[in-house]
Nucleic acid binder design. Sequence first.
DNA 1: CTAGGGTTAG
Length: 589
Amino acid sequence: MMKPNLVKSLSRHHKLTLFSFHTNTNAHNIGKFHTFNHLPSATPTHANVVKSGLSNDTFTTNNLINSYLKLLKIDHAHKLFDEMSHPNVVSWSLLMAGYVRQGQPNIALCLFHQMQGTLVMPNEFTFSTLINACSILANLETGRRIHALVEVFGYRSDLVVCSSLIDMYGKCNRVDEAQMIFDFMWVRNVVSWTSMITTYSQNGQGHLALQLFREFNHIRMNKPNHFMLCSAVTACASLGRLGSGKITHGVVIRLGHDASDVVASALVDMYAKCGCVTYSDKVFRRIVNPSVVPYTSMIVGAAKYGLGTLSLRLFQEMVDRRIKPNSITFVGVLHLFNSMNEKYGVMPDARHYTCIVDMLGRVGRIDEAYQLAQSVQVGSEDDALLWGTLLSASRLHGRVDIAIEASNRVIESNQQVAAAYVTLSNTYALAGDWENAHNLRSEMKRTGVYKEPGSSWIEIKDSTYLFHAGDLSKCSQKRELLSLLRELEGRMKERGHVGVTTGLVFVDVEEEAKEEIVSLHSEKLALAFGLLNTPKGITIIIMKNLRMCRDCHEAFKLISDIVEREFVVRDVNRFHHFKNGSCTCGDFW
DNA sequence: CTAGGGTTAG
């Protein structure tokens, strides 16, 4: 391998020698690079060097830097750069992009800082690289500063710069700002459309993502590529829209993108989230070398539908195939919590502890859950999740004492405050302490804390039906619902579910006054039901609060038996937490 | 000679 410093020093001090050096030695090395690294344009061509070597030192060195970067030798590249007497904007941009690609976007930003101390002016390449760095870091503050410079230097209409800006704002959860850029663009291409669709999709705006996706297809400027299709499929997944998901799957196949592993992974996840684990499996089995991502989707999907054995089998299969599970995989297989660090070297963090608290809490081991929550040091951002989880478990098991403590911790975190109030109030109500329940409600009213009502929806044929929690007023068949529930209870008893409580529990607190919570088994798993008629007169039941629980699955199967029809159930109490920010939406409890 | 989009969780 040639020594860059040698090339450099020769080029600086012995310019005449440079010619012969490159002619003889470097030509040989070019051949080597080519052969060993399969990077056709990784090295400067002989012609480039000859043409510019004597007169343009910067150009030559840039070519060498570029070669080193393509060979992932960033240290060599940086060294060359440091030795340059006149690095230009290309030299700077090259190095910044190299660091971003290498996973060190912070260094790229530092380099820009250094660059600002020189007379070299940034160009559109520099900006798109820097914006990309901010996007990866989800560093909104710096992103905005660079955006300002984009305006100052007159690159606001550059297509690539705008696409990066959309992406950056999207990754920082600033949908409005991303949309502003998109709306003001004069020229757009597939990438800019994809950036916008992805921004919607990743920020809980699946409807807008699908709307924009449809619009793109409607104007027929171009066919969607695998990037765009991925985001569209993800949007369907987040909405639980099986119908749209199937249509998008059709588009994927027609456009020949079904061989893309990433698209296939998105499809696997979409079907799992829409409740069709069978379809997930079909798509999954077509992936020749599935990565940890589709495996995780399958494992989590199976676990959510109570198919614990399948979930664990998939996990075992994954491990057997030497695919390394990551921290997300473990969220789906918490049973293996203890082997996380020992066997796989993944340190459990706040998210995993929250899941354990959830698991202990659900089965009624509240005190252990409480102890664990207390012992874990998590960042303040994760506090709401951790203590909110404990709070809902306390409500489930009527532990007013822990509920008070947990809700205080949630309120202190300043996130999900309204939900904490409601849950605490409901805990009081369930314990028969109506006075405190009402006091809390009045307190909320007085201080203007408002809780968004939770909702569920179900997709049947081409229509989506929406229900609000507890709102059975539009349900014309309340009586049928009740008799159906009785039947369910009876059948569950037949299958050996002892300790089934009969009847309905009314939680009488204002908005949720009419919410009926049905205790279906000894662990007081509360399932709220909605009911509707399909055009064909078939009864469909919607279950709220479906969780990872064997009994849920049992109930689910029973309902399937009764309605004898494929249907989709969505877990509506979902909690969004976006990749790069602390933005939350949806209804956690 | 330099730049931009995608998949897994809670």
